[in-house]
Lab assay of single mutants.
Amino acid sequence: MTYRVRIENADGEVVTIEISADELREKGLTLEELLPPNARIVEVEEVEP
């Protein structure tokens, strides 16, 4: 499974990243732990691999 994640950074700019569930598991991280300081998740969407 892959996630498309929209993130708002500290400057108010919204960027989109895609990350797979396998990648998260391998790194032992959650989506929140990948965020840079002062950023927030705006939207998470599951996409087909």
Score class of each variant (00 low, 15 high):
Glu43Thr: 12
Arg25Ser: 08
Glu48Lys: 13
Ile19Asn: 00
Arg6Ile: 13
Asn38Glu: 07
Leu34Tyr: 14
Glu32Ile: 11
Glu43His: 14
Thr2Ser: 12
Glu8Arg: 09
Leu29Glu: 02
Ser20Cys: 04
Glu23Cys: 13
Leu31Trp: 06
Asn38Tyr: 14
Ala21Gln: 09
Pro49Arg: 12
Asn38Phe: 13
Ile7Arg: 00
Ile41Asp: 01
Val47Leu: 11
Pro49Trp: 14
Glu13Pro: 02
Glu13Ile: 13
Arg40Ala: 04
Ile41Val: 09
Glu18Ser: 08
Ile41Ala: 02
Met1Val: 12
Val44Ala: 02
Arg4Ser: 02
Ile7Tyr: 15
Pro36Phe: 04
Gly28Cys: 06
Val42Gln: 05
Val5Gly: 00
Gly12Val: 00
Val15Arg: 08
Glu26Asn: 12
Pro49Thr: 13
Leu31Tyr: 02
Leu31Asp: 00
Val42Asp: 02
Leu24Pro: 01
Glu46Ala: 11
Pro49Leu: 14
Glu32Ser: 09
Pro49Cys: 12
Ile19Met: 03
Glu45Phe: 12
Ile7Cys: 05
Glu23Met: 13
Arg4His: 05
Gly28Ile: 03
Thr30Glu: 05
Asp11Ala: 10
Asp22His: 11
Val5Thr: 01
Glu32Gly: 07
Arg6Ala: 05
Glu46Gln: 09
Val47Trp: 11
Val15Thr: 11
Leu34Gln: 02
Leu35Lys: 02
Leu34Trp: 15
Val44Ser: 02
Ile19Asp: 00
Val14Phe: 13
Glu26Arg: 14
Asp22Ile: 11
Glu13Gln: 13
Leu24Trp: 04
Ile17Ser: 01
Glu46Gly: 06
Gly28Gln: 07
Glu46Thr: 14
Ile41Arg: 03
Leu29Ile: 12
Arg6Pro: 00
Val44Phe: 06
Leu34Ser: 06
Arg6Cys: 07
Ile17Val: 09
Arg4Glu: 01
Leu31Lys: 01
Val15Cys: 13
Arg6Thr: 15
Asn9Gln: 13
Gly12Arg: 03
Ile7Asp: 00
Ile41Cys: 04
Glu32Ala: 11
Arg4Val: 07
Pro36Val: 03
Glu43Asn: 11
Lys27Cys: 07
Lys27Asn: 08
Thr30Ala: 07
Val47Ile: 14
Ile17Lys: 02
Thr30Phe: 04
Leu29Ala: 07
Thr2Val: 15
Gly28Lys: 08
Val14Glu: 09
Asn38Cys: 08
Glu45Trp: 14
Lys27Met: 09
Glu33Arg: 05
Thr30Gln: 06
Asn9Ile: 14
Val47Gly: 04
Glu18Tyr: 15
Glu18Asp: 08
